[in-house]
Design a protein around this nucleic acid. Structure first.
Lengths: 233, 233
DNA sequence: CTCGTGCTCAAGCGAGATGTTGACTATGTG
DNA sequence: CACATAGTCAACATCTCGCTTGAGCACGAG
């Protein structure tokens, strides 16, 4: 079995390798576009219809549809047609894990990531050095309001245990629901989502004590913490 | 801050998102080629010179060099010039982790991967259902010879604790070194590397009891098991 | 049946990726 | 010094991507 070593001879071992590496590349090719990463990252928060994704990502419908087909062909995304709508979802728990690994490398190796983050999230407190254990205890003891500011459908399909859902657009009208004597900890999709940043800015302007939790549900779950669901599906 | 929602307006939030997703995509683009995945997978086993990589992957030197530059630009690989040689290495422990995540998705979602594996590794026992704990105990008790059949430089830069190095090409001549009364467990770079398969085939033909451990060093380490190094660098 | 909505398909163009070839640089050897 | 080796660079043909546009299809409402 593949004992010859000549350069011209395509040994069976080489054919095997090229065959699997091609398969692995199918997956990474699927994520080799900013738009598709954004789509998958959104889908990792919960199922969405094609045109909801198009609106959230500011892409044309046709373009969104095509990108989703690439993702489906690579097995990262599944779609089901329900009446007039096609609902897409991430196909496997390994997919969010891959996203986290990707982010991990980018953070560790690309100085640009940190630079961009600073540029946009500048000055505002990040609560990066948050003690997870302490937060959990304080949430449970009711000393802190844990606020999920993502759209309600994402909250339903999975949120940090103990969190309260107040989507960012509703926050201004629903300020009265928040106990003014408690500190608010707001989170959204993850460290690179701006929702919680804006929420914290708003809350502080209104005189509340608010900080941002940079974790999203995925990060939280990846740390082995508890996650709840409240919707169907 | 990004309150307008019109499609034509590039809000600051959108610019931020496109900026980071572009960075994430830099990383996945770097892995969006079978050849580059193969290169990184080899480098994950230990440092290599450019032309060693070219020979191992059956690529032209120029092509290899160019792919490596893509990997360097994406921050996945680092290179240092030592005399006449340029030695490349994986830049960060997050990189092998990304490889594992990639493989995880491919295995979970692409039926082709399993099909290709079957086609090439057919029939031969895989020892997939190996009890890790039991293996560790048996290795430590000396009941089993754990054989690393990769090239020596890879063994030196990291191997499973307790393993013995016998590179595949030397195996036939060095059979006498292996105690004939003990079972041999052979491993190589991982589940899709053919070295251990060939080693097991050879050993059985010679009358030894041999099985393959499908894990490579990376998988082993990812499970939290002990890994040893013996070289410099 | 007709119409609007959600989505897909096909064609096409510009931009970018791949791999080869041959020239070029840098380092070390006799 | 000439010469070999390891690696990079530049130029090129080829191919694949990404996105737009406009047509087409499936489903549901009136």
């Amino acid at each position: 079995m593949s004992t010859r070593r000549g350069k011209t001879v395509e040994t069976s071992g080489r054919r095997f390798k090229t065959a699997i590496y091609e398969q692995f590349a199918r997956v990474s090719k699927a994520l080799a576009s900013p738009h598709r990463i954004e789509l998958v990252e959104l889908l990792a928060q919960g199922p969405r219809t094609v045109d909801a994704l198009a609106r959230l990502t500011d892409m044309s419908l046709a373009n969104t549809s095509q990108h989703l087909q690439v993702l489906r062909a690579a097995g990262l995304v599944e779609a089901t047609k329900e009446g007039l709508f096609v609902t897409c979802r991430v196909s496997d728990p390994t997919v969010p894990a891959l996203l986290l690994a990707l982010r991990g490398v980018a953070e560790a190796r690309l100085a640009e990531v940190e630079r961009i983050r600073r540029e946009f999230l500048a000055e505002r407190d990040q609560l990066e050095a948050l003690d997870e254990e302490a937060l959990r205890r304080r949430v449970r003891a009711g000393e802190v309001t844990l606020l999920d500011v993502r759209p309600p459908e994402e909250f339903e399909s999975g949120h940090i245990a103990g969190a309260v859902s107040v989507p960012l657009p509703d926050l201004a009208k629903r300020l009265s629901e928040l106990p003014r004597d408690k500190e608010v900890v707001a989170y959204c999709r993850g460290p690179y989502c701006v929702l919680a940043v804006e929420a914290v800015t708003l809350l502080r302007r209104k005189g509340l004590k608010a900080v941002r939790l940079s974790d999203g549900v995925l990060d939280w779950a990846a740390r082995g913490r508890r996650v709840e669901r409240s919707g169907r599906s």
